[in-house]
């Protein structure tokens, strides 16, 4: 294993631990306001400084890890599940079913993600679940395309034809023969979806459509911070670094996994 992959895994594990044990690690709670320490630069009481309401930035970032990571993880899982089933069925069935299903995908693809997400959050609300559902529902589309393409290729392979020749049913072929063939692609796509989802959540929060206050995620913090950028750069810089590092780590791991499963991949 390459060093870069190990570093990536280490960072992700560390982030997961921080997220799981947030209440024990964080020196303050995410919404505790203290009027006597408004907009303090980093010092020994507040290692990363405080915001406009005297809330400890470090604590808000630690709690924000929970939101950012879980949104990244869960939306990717849901997107993968929907995308795999949808793309798998379309690719395997072929014919008019494939045609119809993929045209729907084309339509969804043509609508800008942000627009769909805004629509969904307006209906469901800007709670955790609203954001989570909105992101899941827009991100399965690209997965479905990838999976369909791969299934189209695999189902013409001699071993599938052989399976069909000895009388295996559709489900058996899908589950026992096609799915294992997809494994590499799925895992790699999954590791790349996570940082994409984290970034989407940040973007959403950054444009003011993310989690409603007082909850924090890295995107929310970056949004709060950028207006203060000129006078209190710490508010923007630390959440920015956090987003950068976790996205980089996920990508490093994803690269490593791809090399592992697809050694001959030209990219």
């Amino acid at each position: 294993m390459k060093l870069s992959v190990l570093i990536g895994v280490f960072v992700i594990l560390l982030a997961c631990i921080v997220a799981l044990f947030a209440p024990w690690i964080a020196p303050y709670t995410y919404d505790q306001q203290d009027m006597s320490v408004i907009l303090q630069p980093p010092d020994k009481d507040h290692l990363l400084g405080t915001d406009s309401l005297g809330r400890d930035l470090l604590s808000r970032m630690i709690y924000g890890t929970r939101v950012s990571l879980s949104i990244g993880l869960f939306t990717s899982l849901v997107a993968m599940a929907i995308g795999t089933v949808y793309g798998g069925v379309a690719g395997y069935k072929g014919g008019w079913a494939d045609h119809l299903m993929m045209r729907l995908v084309d339509v969804l693809f043509a609508i800008p993600d942000l627009l769909l997400i805004i629509l969904i959050t307006v209906v469901i609300g800007r709670e955790f679940w609203g954001i989570f559902l909105a992101l899941s529902l827009v991100s399965w589309v690209s997965v479905a395309r990838l999976v369909r393409g791969e299934v189209l290729r695999l189902k013409e392979m001699p071993y599938i034809e052989a399976a069909r020749g000895i009388g295996a049913g559709s489900w058996r072929i899908l589950l026992r023969h096609l799915l294992p063939g997809l494994r590499g692609l799925l895992i790699v796509t999954f590791t790349f979806r996570i940082p994409a989802a984290i970034l989407s959540e940040s973007t959403l929060s950054f444009v003011g459509l993310g989690l409603a206050p007082p909850f924090s995620s890295w995107g929310v913090l970056a949004n709060d911070g950028w207006t203060a950028m000129r006078f209190f750069p710490h508010l923007m810089v630390f959440p920015g670094i956090a987003i950068f590092v976790i996205v980089l780590a996920c990508n490093l791991v994803g690269d490593g996994l791809r090399d592992l499963w697809e050694p001959k991949s030209p990219v």
Partner: peptide, 28 residues
């Protein structure tokens, strides 16, 4: 929507939670 209103709203939200035990949701 306005940065001043957002700060005040978050402060009120925290004060109501602390002093009354009520969690008020915010919408801008």
């Amino acid at each position: 929507t306005n940065p001043e209103n957002l700060l005040i709203a978050q402060n009120l939200q925290a004060q109501w939670k602390k002093n009354l035990g009520i969690e008020v949701k915010l919408d801008n």
